[in-house]
Design a protein around this nucleic acid. Structure first.
Lengths: 357, 357
DNA sequence: GTGAAAGCGCTAACAA
DNA sequence: TTGTTAGCGCTTTCAC
């Protein structure tokens, strides 16, 4: 009952050799059609499935990838980021015949155990990691042991093997959008400029202004530290220097700005427009009313795992051009909404609505 | 850089044989202390870790368990049940040196692929499953292939290898509680009586009444079909026949009853008391105000994985008595709260408060 | 106490 | 086109 059929069994039943059966299950050519049929029949008859351990042993490939989430389980569960990402990773992996192992681990002791474990036991062929602030050590450790690792989100300026949104392009789009709507003094609420995303978003902002022939006014570039309350405090100053639109680098700051503007008795977006950045779960309540840049969550999982699988395959299994590059920058989507001025006045939350001309 | 040290390497460096090194890493005795030291030193020097595939190959044990969740990723993510359960499973597994593979799969095609896969590829040694309505096929399939499987929640009346709450005991406690508070006509809102949990909870209810010498009045036993609106509709009838307390078999029904009672202008719990059952996520908003039976979520994961690991070990690795039993019934906790009558009147949500004497 | 050797189920040269 | 053979890295008899 419990003893599973082996290659040997199939070979015997189909009156061939192990090698031939192996060729058949691996879809290699150089097997006569008739033989192949016979083998297939035997496989079906015995309900044979290759033993993955033996296979891994012989090839050095496990057909298994790991997903590492250096966060607490509570964080994972409360952040809507993870479900679609995890989902798409497993889907891609399973379709390619790979299994997925999941590590949600937080404490330092666990992570240091993990990298030893993963790098050396050869249980998995590679990993996708959703890094947190101090995951670089893990990443480097994988690198040292030649364990392919793709991160979701770039965590270092000089890095390869990551999937991230195109921060530059996103900012460019956002600010372009405001300019096209005839806003002329667009401010930006930045977050730590030393962060990669912050850096690129600021570049995108500047580029958009330059292309439109608008001046880059240092007064309109303000560090909101990625924090709602900081943004809230900085916003009045922006209004004082005559800004008519704000591009907030994340939604927390967009909300802070929104509140400040409303308290000053101004309307959004008639007096001051805001574009946010769809990256903060707790902002969900306000999101349906704010124009934001939407992150392609499913693509994160999809592309990271595809990129990883591509690194694992010797023959480049895909014709997708991007998979050959050292990293992937995903396009974002600008979701234009008449901002909450409208919603508040009418007591509704419109889905999509016309732009101000 | 990438070539990992093997047993052979360690043996060579420590001037012993593979067998001896194997004995050392497996902590077997029959190795001279001095030799053991030498081997250990070599292991440390080479930073050796055994290759899990080779090990699995030789022993037939993978030291890896699977967790199967036949649900959509969205369901998993929105239900607070899963985070603590998953968390505790991984923790227990990792502590025992086991890895965890996770399958969140919903569609029938995927599940049928999965059972083939799991049963035959010998990638994992056993599984913990959080079954949904139609997971019995999977379970049976695992059984057929001698792949140990523990389910969280019993899904069939005649079943072993599961961890569930003690439904009988929980109901007994709940109804006892009401009786001790001097309620004399305790009604029960049941759900499908053919379900295991429903069956046991009903038995607990009856037992409590009998022990207290109270009559079992068929008028007070009403099928609420586990549904809020059904409970809502049935509740006035219960009041008509003079019930003074309601034990609802789940929180949805507790909420339905609550609304009905309030609309009739009665107070909870002064006029009619309610005890709910802490098993419906969407009820969370109302929960802090209702006396409920709390499910031990962490224990689900903890005990299911322990039970599984115990099935996998040849030598019963634990002295825990319960692990030898065919299944585990976990005790629940009665969380007594002054019900929302109080909260509504005072506009607050008390944490814990005194019982009515 | 220790080592030699067989074998777990597969793949991948190499031979035929 | 097919079969033979030698591993992959470990465990596990069985001699010594």
């Amino acid at each position: 009952m419990s003893d599973l059929p082996t290659l040997e069994d199939v070979a015997r039943l189909s009156k061939t050799s192990r090698s031939t059966v192996s060729r058949v299950i691996n879809n290699e050519d150089g097997v006569k059609d008739e033989t192949r049929e016979r083998v297939m029949a035997a496989i079906r008859q015995l309900n044979y499935q290759p033993n993955r351990n033996a296979r891994a042993m012989a090839t050095g490939q496990n057909h298994c990838i790991g997903v590492i989430v250096p966060r607490t389980i509570t964080q994972v569960h409360s952040d809507p980021f993870f479900a679609p990402v995890m989902d798409s990773i497993s889907r891609v992996a399973h379709e390619a015949g790979y299994s997925v192992m999941l590590w949600i681990i937080e404490s330092a002791s666990e992570t240091s155990w993990l990298d030893q474990h993963l790098s050396q036991t050869r249980q998995i062929d590679g990993v996708v990691m959703i890094p947190s602030l101090n995951s670089e050590r893990l990443f480097r450790s994988f690198e040292r042991y030649d364990l392919p690792c793709i991160t979701i989100g770039r965590f270092a300026r000089q890095q390869e093997n990551f999937v991230d949104i195109d921060n530059f392009g996103a900012a460019l789009t956002a600010v372009n959008h405001l300019i096209e709507l005839n806003y002329r003094r667009v401010a930006i609420l930045t977050g730590r400029p030393e962060s990669n995303s912050g850096h690129d978003r600021l570049l995108g902002y500047k580029e958009a202004l330059q292309r439109a022939g608008l001046p880059i006014d240092p007064d309109l570039i303000v560090d909101g530290e990625f924090e709602e309350n900081v943004a809230y405090e900085m916003t009045p100053g922006l209004i004082d220097v005559g800004c008519d639109a704000i591009f907030a680098m994340n939604d927390s700051m967009a909300i802070g700005a929104l509140h400040a503007i409303q308290e000053l008795g101004k309307r959004v977006p008639e007096d001051i427009a805001i574009v946010g950045f769809d990256d903060v779960p707790r902002a969900s309540a306000i999101k349906p009313t704010l124009t934001t840049i939407r992150q392609p969550l499913y693509k994160f999982g999809e592309f990271s795992s595809k990129l990883l699988l591509n690194r694992l395959q010797t023959e480049p299994h895909s014709d997708d051009e991007f998979l050959k590059r050292p990293y992937v920058l995903l396009p974002t989507e600008l979701v234009v909404r008449e901002s909450c001025g409208f919603a508040l006045r009418h007591g509704i939350m419109p889905n999509d609505s016309p732009q101000r001309a």
